[in-house]
């Protein structure tokens, strides 16, 4: 499953293709990276209108300059303990595929770190934990940069099409 995801997202598969620029952000103690080409913008926390009948990780919708876009809280999505929002909490707006064209989705994260250029040598395939955790399918690979490990995410699986499939089950 995970290799399929990689193949779909990165056209050709293999860790080599994953090299490139990543926006890294923090969730609890973990560092994540997301392909910079998917990122539209980073905005500070703003008032979120809760949308009923959605999974808990869908925090609601915001007004992004006249457009209404959904915001997901990644901590909840990844089954991590939630915490109070701080002034570093922000929303990364990514553009992902949905069934009908691209959509913009906000990802609520603890803080945004930096943009890293990650080379192919630094990337390892995602580890296998042998669990049935579906969230693992969103992991493209692990990057070791200056002793830190960044978890590279596939935006489409986290908030795009992949999510769509799950939502339709609800």
């Amino acid at each position: 499953m995970s290799s399929e995801t990689v193949a779909r997202d990165e056209a050709g598969g293999g860790v080599k293709e994953l090299a490139g620029k990543y926006l890294t952000f923090a969730l609890a103690d973990e560092e994540y990276g997301i392909g910079i080409l998917k990122v539209r913008e980073i905005i500070g926390l703003m008032e979120i209108t809760a949308v009923p009948q959605t999974p808990t990780y869908v925090k609601g919708v915001i007004n992004l300059r006249g457009r209404v876009i959904p915001v997901l809280e990644l901590r909840i999505k990844f089954d991590m303990a939630t915490q109070e929002y701080t002034d570093r909490t922000c929303i990364i707006v990514v553009e992902v595929d949905s069934g009908e064209g691209t959509i913009q989705v906000g990802m609520l994260v603890d803080s945004v770190s930096e943009v890293l250029n990650i080379t192919a040598e630094e990337i390892e395939p995602p580890p296998s934990f042998g669990t049935a955790n579906t969230e693992m399918s969103a992991i493209l690979g692990m990057a070791k940069v200056k002793g830190d490990v960044k978890i590279l995410l596939d935006a489409n699986s986290v908030v795009g099409e992949g999510l769509l499939e799950k939502l339709s089950d609800i």
């Binding site: 919708v61 876009i69 959904p70």
Partner: peptide, 9 residues
């Protein structure tokens, strides 16, 4: 539209 996958709530 609520956009993307939220539109069929």
């Amino acid at each position: 539209s609520l956009g993307g996958y939220l539109k069929d709530i």
